[in-house]
Design a protein around this nucleic acid. Structure first.
Lengths: 213, 213
DNA sequence: ACCTGAACACCGTTCAAGT
DNA sequence: ACCTGAACACCGTTCAAGT
């Protein structure tokens, strides 16, 4: 019936993918669906509401795309990793999305489903119920922070290129950089780094299980 | 000499603190310093440049306010915690700041100093030089993600209130929430949770040291 | 160099009016 | 209910002109 709303969200997502978040205006969306800007308001209520709907969609897709993470058949470690990998892949395809999750508390049903998925993973790992909410926030915050950094450009050359770093400060004031001389020039394999981080994260969960039986 | 730039940045920071990031316009800053909007441009070049300068300042303040973290006299564990705590305190005072760091790769000297501080902490912990850059990104990404979540509202009631979560979905579809029934209603002590997370983070660094000697 | 004033090409949203 | 058109109160930034 109300496929008009879906049409509007489709157009908005396409615009965000192509022109970024700052290219996403009510006027641009309206033009894309062949309407006047004001004709959007009955369907999305607000620009904020449009953004909320957009992240709601992404979370829904995350939940659907990581079915193995939900089905309790595979091992919790693999479910955790699958979930994180899916989030990363999704974020790379829609680089505007991750950053929104920091400011718009996601109350949509799909957001709750996603949190619940992590709850069950941690419970199956053997985390005591009292610690599960904190560890869920720890894990989701790290994953979200990481994919937002990668998609948003924080890991980009601007902040990484060692040549850019050197020379701005008097020599000797950067002892850490000095000690790492040989290790800062190589290009980074981000997928491999993400996987290594997930290994550390899984080990942290295991340690939390061992600590409190 | 060029205290005018500092005056502009002071005004911009005050506006961001009081009215949030969306209240921070070139026009508002100009009015606050008693100038025409265009008179700002020789000093800050751009609105993007103004935002960069603002986060540069925050990073400088982070570096200055955590001197114990830099001075190699205290233990690395305490230096890591001090650094993270200082970042959190700063972020709570300027809630608009953390989110900016995801999208604006900080190349400013103070950003580099901050990264170098974490490098030396990890080196002193005994992390092998080859692993230091990855672990620095892991630690800084978690801390940044956490303070951005807290300051941005992701941890807020919208996404936490269990009453809001229940009822939106057919019962039985949220097994995790069901199993955690008693543990989702209590209010959270965010400072205590942050400290607990830091304990897990420190333990993760220790595990990385033990793994590769 | 530093600043102004007018102007351009945008925003989100309200409101009265149409169907 | 759904849509339009004009309008309001904003944006960042360019440009020509002043000093």
């Amino acid at each position: 019936m109300s496929g008009k709303r879906e049409e509007i969200l489709d157009a908005a997502e396409a615009i965000a993918d192509e022109r970024g978040l700052e290219g996403l205006s009510m006027r641009a969306v309206a033009q894309a669906v062949g309407l006047t800007p004001m004709a959007l308001y009955p369907h999305v209520k607000d620009k904020g509401g449009l953004l909320d709907a957009l992240v709601g969609r992404m979370l829904g897709r995350l939940y659907e795309a990581a079915p193995g993470a939900a089905s309790q058949e595979s091992e919790w470690r693999e479910r955790l990793r699958l979930f994180a990998r899916t989030a990363r892949t999704l974020s790379l395809g829609h680089p505007w999305a991750a950053g929104l999750l920091f400011s718009r508390p996601a109350v949509a049903p799909d957001a709750v489903r996603t949190v619940d998925l992590l709850y069950t993973v941690l419970l199956d790992a053997g985390i005591s119920p009292a610690e599960v909410p904190r560890l869920e926030r720890l894990v989701s915050t790290f994953v979200l922070g990481w994919i937002a950094s990668e998609a948003g450009g924080r890991f980009g050359p601007g902040s990484l290129d060692p040549r850019g770093r050197r020379g701005q400060l008097p020599t000797g004031t950067l002892p850490g950089h000095g000690a790492l001389a040989g290790h800062l020039d190589q290009p980074v394999d981000w997928e491999a780094e993400f996987e290594a981080d997930l290994t550390d994260l899984v080990a942290m969960v295991e340690a939390a299980v061992a600590r409190k039986p």
